[in-house]
């Protein structure tokens, strides 16, 4: 008789630590962050209300808008490339070639290295190559900075996405393939009519992860180019997160509030775009 309520009580108690951590580490700072975006402040205990002024300034900030377009371009390119690479590597490693496990480990390994370190290492690699070709450094050319960032992120993220895709491939029941083959499906048809629809859940997850990771990219951006080069007063390879950070620690008494406001706008953009993506890819998911 009394077993059920007791269970509920236990459930509550067990959830409590995580819930408390979530509130302290996420909910509270989040609400406080939104609150602070309406203030001018140097430290959080001394604030001055300024209404929506911070938001007005954020929208007038050229570097903020420019970093949005740069980030968007980067997100589109890396979303496509990372997922294509990961998908085909995963495909190659599930058809039973020798040493698959070794390759999986090797491809996954870049994920274990921190972003700052990766950024510096790749900076050295790129500059080394460019110097041998008698070309100037990565930080002096914004196109090269962009593609450098894309290469770095593909290298780092493809392995992680590959693992998810491998799991997806292994979840496609083999009887589906058999049935399709009996019905006379070609190899191409097997891929597009059986594998792809069955893989949609993995694709949803992977594109969500690459989309949000690329949007929020900070470490690699800071270490690889730091936003350089500068053109007409705009840091051409500075992505949104780095730009917000630089605004926040800039000079002037309003810098922190404006940075905070830009952070809130950034949050809204990321949430809106990732929800849209989830909606679009979820629609394509099927049940076997």
């Amino acid at each position: 008789m009394f077993k059920k309520p007791k269970r509920k009580l236990y459930a509550l108690i067990f959830v409590l630590p995580t819930f408390a951590a979530f509130v302290i580490g996420f909910i509270y700072p989040f609400i406080r962050g939104i609150y602070l975006s309406f203030f001018q402040f140097q430290i959080v205990s001394k604030t001055k209300f300024v209404g929506i002024n911070n938001y007005l300034k954020a929208f007038q900030d050229d570097s903020f808008l420019r970093s949005f377009w740069f980030t968007l371009g980067f997100v589109v390119v890396s979303l496509v490339l990372i997922n294509l690479i990961a998908f085909f590597v995963a495909y190659g490693l599930t058809i039973g070639i020798r040493g698959s496990n070794v390759f999986r480990t090797v491809f996954f390994m870049p994920n274990l290295v921190g972003g700052i370190i990766l950024g510096y290492i790749w900076h050295q690699i790129f500059d080394g190559i460019l110097r041998n070709l008698d070309m100037p450094s990565l930080v002096t050319n914004s196109d090269m900075g962009f593609w450098g960032l894309v290469i770095l992120m593909c290298w780092q993220q493809a392995g992680y996405m590959m693992i998810i895709y491998i799991a997806g491939f292994q979840n496609v029941p083999s009887d589906l393939y058999e049935a399709a083959k009996i019905d006379g499906a070609t190899k191409g048809q097997l891929l597009t009519k059986v594998t792809l629809p069955m893989m949609m859940p993995s694709i949803t997850i992977c594109s969500f992860l690459t989309l949000t990771n690329s949007f929020k990219l900070f470490d690699q951006n800071l270490a690889l180019t730091g936003g350089a080069p500068l053109k007409d007063g705009i840091w051409t390879t500075r992505m949104m997160a780095l730009n917000i950070y630089k605004t926040f620690y800039g000079e002037g008494r309003s810098a922190k509030g404006v940075g905070q406001a830009e952070g809130v706008i950034f949050f809204i953009i990321v949430v809106a775009i990732s929800l849209l993506q989830l909606f679009l890819t979820r629609r394509k998911e099927v049940q076997a």
Partner: peptide, 13 residues
């Protein structure tokens, strides 16, 4: 900003 511009100037870009 000045640093980045100098870097590019030195590199010839």
């Amino acid at each position: 900003g000045v640093g980045a511009a100098l870097t590019q100037y030195a590199a010839g870009t």
